[in-house]
């Protein structure tokens, strides 16, 4: 069969009912300011770790709220907890606590 250079894209839709939202609920419960995030990307723009990696808190927050947690561990492992994201955040999200809570949630078994 001749190759035309095209491939079939896997389905991209996000099913919030089926996805793993336990981490999102856990963080929401322990740090309500997490919900205030407007995904503006200020955190990612200022991120020190973002210089060397794909780390961006905006991305992490988005993935967690969608329940796509497979990539999250790899991303937040780059975080240096320096807190610059917290200083630039226009919505005053307590970013350092959010990061620590994600680490914690990934470690513990959540129902």
């Amino acid at each position: 069969m001749p190759s035309f250079g095209f491939s079939v894209q896997p389905p991209q839709h996000i099913d919030l009912d089926k996805n793993y939202r336990a981490i999102f609920d856990f963080i929401k419960e322990n740090e309500p300011s997490f919900q205030r995030c407007i995904y503006c990307g200020s955190c990612g723009a200022t991120c020190s770790a973002g210089n060397f990696s794909q780390m961006s808190l905006r991305k992490v927050n988005l993935l967690i709220s969608r329940g796509q947690i497979s990539e999250v561990k790899n991303l937040i492992d780059n975080c240096l907890l320096c807190g610059k994201c917290q200083l630039v955040c226009p919505r005053n999200v307590n970013t350092r606590k959010v990061i620590l809570l994600i680490h914690k949630a990934l470690k513990m078994p959540l129902s």
Binding site: F52, S53, D77, N78, L81, H103, K104
Partner: peptide
């Protein structure tokens, strides 16, 4: 809880 952030810093700098 120090092993929580046991990481692989991909320092290219």
């Amino acid at each position: 809880g120090h092993e929580m952030c046991n990481t692989h810093y991909a320092f290219k700098y």
